[in-house]
């Protein structure tokens, strides 16, 4: 799988779930790619630096979301 294909798969899958929730665990993303977690990680890292995914953290755990989505993102917008 190349990066573009991985990104498309993840973006598609996450967009379908936006009505329910906007944050996902790393393992959810690895499952979308049907890869072992360590194999999936470089694709997911790249999606973050490409600006497609962003992190969200409770401080103790971390989640991923499509950039700019989610109710808290709006609430925390400081501009």
């Amino acid at each position: 799988m190349d990066q573009a294909e991985a990104a498309e798969k993840i973006i598609d899958a996450l967009q379908k779930k936006q009505k329910i929730k906007s944050k996902f665990y790393f393992s959810d993303l690895a499952k979308i790619l049907e890869m072992k977690p360590r194999a999936a990680k470089p694709f997911i890292n790249k999606m973050v630096t490409d600006g497609q995914l962003e992190y969200w953290s409770s401080g103790s755990t971390s989640m991923y979301g499509l950039t700019g989505t989610g109710k808290q993102a709006a609430a925390e917008d400081e501009d």
Partner: peptide, 9 residues
């Protein structure tokens, strides 16, 4: 939920 600098979680 802010987490860090770009590229870091």
């Amino acid at each position: 939920g802010i987490v860090g600098v770009f590229g870091y979680g």
